[in-house]
Write a protein that binds this DNA or RNA. Sequence first.
DNA 1: GCGCTTTTGTGCGCGTGTTCACAAACCCGT
DNA 2: ACGGGTTTGTGAACACGCGCACAAAAGCGC
Lengths: 278, 278
Amino acid sequence: MRASSPERPSRGSGVPTPRRRRASGRGSAEHDGAPRGIPEASIARLPLYLRALVAMADRGITSVSSEELAGASGVNSAKLRKDLSHLGSYGTRGVGYEVDYLVYQISRELGLTQDWAVAIIGIGNLGRALANYGGFATRGFRTACLIDADPNQVGQRVSGLAVRHLDDLEALIAEHRVAIGVIATPAGAAQEVADRLVAAGVRSVLNFAPAVLTVPPGVELRKVDLSTELQILAFHEQRRVSAVAFEAAANAVVPDDVGDVIDAELGPVAPAASGLRV
Amino acid sequence: MRASSPERPSRGSGVPTPRRRRASGRGSAEHDGAPRGIPEASIARLPLYLRALVAMADRGITSVSSEELAGASGVNSAKLRKDLSHLGSYGTRGVGYEVDYLVYQISRELGLTQDWAVAIIGIGNLGRALANYGGFATRGFRTACLIDADPNQVGQRVSGLAVRHLDDLEALIAEHRVAIGVIATPAGAAQEVADRLVAAGVRSVLNFAPAVLTVPPGVELRKVDLSTELQILAFHEQRRVSAVAFEAAANAVVPDDVGDVIDAELGPVAPAASGLRV
DNA sequence: GCGCTTTTGTGCGCGTGTTCACAAACCCGT
DNA sequence: ACGGGTTTGTGAACACGCGCACAAAAGCGC
Ligand SMILES: NC(=O)c1ccc[n+]([C@@H]2O[C@H](COP(=O)([O-])OP(=O)(O)OC[C@H]3O[C@@H](n4cnc5c(N)ncnc54)[C@H](O)[C@@H]3O)[C@@H](O)[C@H]2O)c1
Ligand SMILES: NC(=O)c1ccc[n+]([C@@H]2O[C@H](COP(=O)([O-])OP(=O)(O)OC[C@H]3O[C@@H](n4cnc5c(N)ncnc54)[C@H](O)[C@@H]3O)[C@@H](O)[C@H]2O)c1
């Protein structure tokens, strides 16, 4: 692959020479001819590495091996090395990686050497928590505006920023050059808000509402779904209980309803509710 | 595989007749701890289907095809069918799926026919939002206790529930039979809280703190990482900009429109900040 | 009963991601 | 200069999940 690469910027002289990745052959009939190449799965882990590296830098650590960094990030070291190799050949064999240098390279790859303006739409429980959260600002994101549809919310100050009305959405997006829209409205309003954001030029959306949104191609949509996370945990919890119950039932004569056996275990608070809610 | 299966419960007479699935009873001698192997990826989508199905049921829809349900869930219909096939053969060829019946089956599989007690640890911005959120209770989860280390927080009522002190964690877990622990403390405290939860018997943990946690095998750990989500979006945003810039550079002859496009497009607020933060 | 239509359930090829394991590269002491 | 010790970068095998495409079932009209 890159074995034939001429040579990498020798780090001795300090300033790194950003190298553009070549559009890996593969005549895939994919969308945009972007300088493709770095796997989505790897990208999703870069923030993890970055966080661990920054923590190390704070502790005064200047050099780190893939094994150490992998441990701190909770991943396999081979995976870590392969992930980093997608950015370039930034390590030193027999030594490891220089922390500062790697922090810079990952930051650059993730686009964190710039500030991105973020708009939060829906300033309720969750939107307010997000607005008050200091962790974003320190990581390259600037909460540029807060938007809500409720006239009672409009004008209130949250974390030093005034809540603006939904009517001004388009103007605010343009004014602040908002790049990322965060949707924290009720599910029913989410699609409409997304549509307006996209129409206003936003091409990155993070959705917290429990709704399936559709956006045109070219717009990046990610979602955070808390209910789903809990439900996945519930599945494993139940499976664990059933496994025990199953074993127990193997001895007894199973009548018709296995369910009764299950809730004998320490699991749920309420005895197997008859009516299903959800 | 099971094509030659002798016969499955024929629900020919139209009526749902909720039928319990075979407890892996058939002659097969596969007896491991886990009764069955339903792929993790499928499980993660079940809540999505469930949500769509419930919405349909509310609208009075009683029957749905895989194509329709897949559309409403934003997934490929073949994938949907394969996912559902892991639960059993609950559809009717040529017709589709009965909404109520499917809601029941998925709920059962996810363990949502029971209530699970949830503890939230760290009642700050985020923990408070979670505690105030009504969406959990309606989906089989009951916020059983709120725990914080700050004496000033202790005793306050949030959403009708008094905040308790961290010292009582073990007692509260036992008392309420907490099955799921939600960590919303600062990152520095997360591992310690997780350790105490696990020691107290909790085997499902949802972590919001930006920290890599380790839990013993057998404990299910999931995380929600908002900063990471934003950083992934930032990556795509940046890639998009570079792609345009790249193209512009290639066609250096016509810089006119392209250059404007870049500027006009929502770029970073600050022109490539010199200092990297993160 | 029979053929026609519809839709499920799934076999199969494919691409993506993960992990192992090892040669190449580098540092350092002698 | 050189050899020994260490760690990277990556080829290759493996595992997994996705989606196409199709035969098998079910319903329906006649
Ligand atoms: N609070 C949580 O912990 C939590 C957890 C999981 C999911 N969610 C989801 O996040 C979203 C927000 O939750 P929340 O608890 O903050 O709800 P909330 O009701 O407290 O806040 C919603 C806010 O959105 C505003 N709003 C309504 N329609 C709007 C529109 N069209 N445009 C702009 N603003 C609008 C409302 O005025 C309100 O201020 C919901 O979809 C919820 O399901 C929240
Ligand atoms: N607020 C957000 O929108 C947001 C977004 C992303 C991530 N997070 C993460 O979620 C976590 C909570 O965020 P927040 O904004 O609510 O912070 P916060 O500072 O408002 O709240 C933290 C709470 O945890 C309590 N606490 C501290 N140590 C504790 C301990 N050992 N045991 C129990 N409670 C303890 C504090 O008293 C405080 O009430 C943080 O790790 C943060 O990084 C928050």
